[in-house]
């Protein structure tokens, strides 16, 4: 009898270890009926909840687009606010299905953390904000300044690189939470607040007196911000990547949220392939043929998403890196064919 218990225990252990290792994310997500998406706790334009806990932002809309592609329902998504420190562990432990949290695509993260980046939703760069009354006009004048930084970010590393390269000293004051960083800067704990320049623009409006602060002209780093998924699940990786491409492809061929139903009758083969009228591209990523139609119908194309979320925080798209490649930007999608 004793032997039996041991056998059962070991057998159970073996079967458990087998099931944990071979996870199929799409199946799991479909089974539970919603997508679990990791976002920032509060960065206007990227992800922030309103009073009724309705999330909005470009990162949020990306998750809604994925939910639309999988469930034909942009509300079939639950958001997990994560600090910079928690985000990768949350993704690799399976707590979330996709991480869409102003996360910079770097080599070490893409190769060594067990995650894969699937696209660049927003091309950003790190900047500095200072109170106007300091009289600083360039980041090169910041020697010996106290600098407020969020911990566990590329920002922290870039700042160290920048000050070392330019032979300047600085005093890093590091917090876990972006809100605390902003509060400490507003209270005068630091002379400088540094983070991605888009976030600087957004956070400036949360300061007590936005007009008393300015953003310095220097951009000291490349910050391609994009969604990421766990490594080792190629189907899920493809879904994540092609939902992003569908947003761009739709914009390029003039398909937007308002005219998507009209466009179903389009003669343009590229549009017909995108919307699933021609071909069976959906089945390649384990989804129905109208996967991209659902995304555009519920969420819109990249321009819709940008104008809804990023334009209101005062970051122009025209002429920036985030414009479509046809207008000189970097947003480019491989063809759907």
């Amino acid at each position: 009898m004793n032997k039996k218990i041991v056998t059962i225990a070991l057998g159970a252990a073996l079967s458990l270890s087998a099931s944990a290792a071979l996870a199929d994310t799409l199946e799991d997500v479909q089974a539970k009926g919603y997508l679990q998406c990791g976002v920032t706790p509060s960065t206007p334009g990227f992800a922030s909840p309103d009073e009724n806990n309705n999330w909005s932002g470009i990162d949020v809309d990306y998750c809604r687009a994925m939910a639309a592609a999988i469930f034909d329902d942009p509300e079939a998504v639950r958001f997990t606010p994560l600090t910079s420190k928690e985000r990768f562990t949350a993704l690799s432990s399976g707590e979330i299905d996709v991480l869409s949290r102003t996360t910079t695509w770097t080599m070490s993260r893409d190769t060594n953390l067990g995650i894969s980046f699937t696209g660049v939703m927003f091309y950003d760069g790190q900047g500095f904000m200072v109170p106007k009354d300091l009289g600083v006009n360039s980041a090169l004048e910041l020697s010996d300044a106290a600098v407020c930084i969020e911990s566990g970010t590329t920002t922290e590393l870039n700042a160290a690189d920048y000050f070392a390269t330019n032979g300047m000293n600085y005093n890093p004051v590091v917090f876990e939470d972006q809100d605390e960083v902003v509060k400490a800067y507003d209270d005068g704990r630091c002379d400088v607040f540094t983070t991605d320049s888009s976030a600087l623009a957004a956070e400036r409006f949360s300061l007590a007196d936005p007009d008393a602060h300015k953003i310095l002209p220097q951009i000291i780093s490349k910050e391609p911000l994009g969604p990421s998924v766990r490594q080792g699940d190629d189907l899920w990786f493809n879904i994540s990547r092609w939902v992003y491409f569908a947003l761009l492809e739709a914009e390029e061929y003039g398909v937007n949220q308002a005219n998507v139903d009209e466009m179903l009758g389009s003669e343009n083969p590229s549009v017909r392939r995108l919307l699933g009228v021609e071909g069976e591209f959906g089945s390649y990523v384990g989804l129905p043929g109208d996967w991209a139609y659902r995304v555009i119908k519920h969420v819109g194309n990249y321009a819709d998403v940008y104008e809804r979320n990023v334009t209101p925080i005062g970051i122009e798209r025209a002429g920036s890196l985030n414009d479509l490649w046809t207008r000189g930007g970097l947003q480019y999608s491989p063809p759907i064919r």
Binding site: S84, K85, R109, N112, G152, V174
Partner: peptide
Amino acid sequence: NVFMGTALNQSGKA
């Protein structure tokens, strides 16, 4: 803060 926070996050060795 510095080791279990920043160092963990930058190295990924949770």
